[in-house]
C-alpha cells in the first residue's frame, strides 16, 4: 500500500512538473505549483515528517500561491514566447541534473538505521530528551531547545527577507512621489 501511494504521488509530481514546463498561461502555472507543493506535502507525510508537510502546505500551497497571484496581477497572465531556442539553459539544466544523479549514488538508503544521520546526535536527543525537556514532540524540542541557535538564525533570515522585500517594493514613496500618495 505504501509503495502504491509513493508511486502514485511521484507520478503525479512528475506529470505536474511536465505540465508546468509546457504551460504558457501563468495563472495555470501558479495554481499547478500550488498542487506541486500539495503533492510534496503528501510525500513528506508518507516519509513520517508531518512537521515538514505542515510547513510545505502552509507556505508552498497557501501563502506563496497568494503572493504569486498578487505578482501576476501586476505583470499579466501570459508568458512571452521565446524568440529563439535557448540551448545554454538546457545544457545547464542537463548538466546540473547529471551532477545531482551522480551525487545521489553516494546517498545512503532512505530509512536505514545505520545511516550516519541516525548515528551522530540523534540517539542522544531521543534518549535524553524525555528527562531533559519533557516535550512529547521531539521535533519541537530539537528545533527550539537543542538547536535554538539555528532557529534564531532562521528567524533573523525571515526578518531580513521581509525587510529586503519592503525596501524593494514599498520604499518607492521616498523618491518624490509624496504628492501622489499622501498619508498612506
Amino acid at each position: 500500500m505504501t509503495e502504491f501511494v509513493d508511486v502514485a504521488l511521484l507520478a503525479l509530481l512528475a506529470v505536474t512538473g511536465l505540465a508546468l514546463l509546457k504551460l504558457r498561461n501563468l495563472f495555470a502555472v501558479v495554481i499547478l505549483s500550488g498542487i506541486y507543493s500539495l503533492l510534496s506535502a503528501g510525500l513528506f507525510v508518507t516519509m513520517d515528517a508531518p512537521d515538514v508537510a505542515f510547513t510545505e502546505s502552509a507556505v508552498g500551497l497557501g501563502v506563496s500561491t497568494v503572493l504569486m497571484l498578487g505578482a501576476l496581477a501586476l505583470v499579466g497572465h501570459e508568458e512571452k514566447k521565446p524568440t529563439r531556442p535557448r540551448v545554454l539553459p538546457l545544457a545547464v539544466v542537463i548538466l546540473t541534473g547529471a551532477i545531482l544523479l551522480y551525487g545521489m549514488a553516494d546517498v545512503p538508503p532512505f530509512g536505514d538505521p545505520n545511516n550516519p544521520i541516525h548515528q551522530h546526535v540523534t540517539p542522544r536527543y531521543l534518549e535524553e530528551m524525555p528527562e531533559e525537556i519533557e516535550v512529547p514532540n521531539v521535533v519541537s524540542a530539537v528545533l527550539a531547545s537543542y538547536r535554538s541557535y539555528d532557529t534564531m538564525g532562521e528567524t533573523t533570515v525571515i526578518f531580513a527577507a521581509g525587510v529586503g522585500v519592503l525596501l524593494l517594493l514599498a520604499g518607492r514613496r521616498r523618491r518624490g512621489q509624496d504628492e501622489e500618495e499622501p498619508g498612506e
Binding site: 498578487g70 519533557e134 516535550v135 527550539a144 531547545s145 534564531m152 528567524t155 517594493l169 514599498a170
Partner: peptide
Amino acid sequence: QHRGIFWVELGVITTVFGTMVSIFYAI
C-alpha cells in the same frame, strides 16, 4: 526548558506573521 521554548516560539510566530503580512501588503 518549557518556558524557554514558549518564549522562543512566540518570537518565531511574531516574526513569521509580520514578515508574511508585510510582503503581502507590499505586493
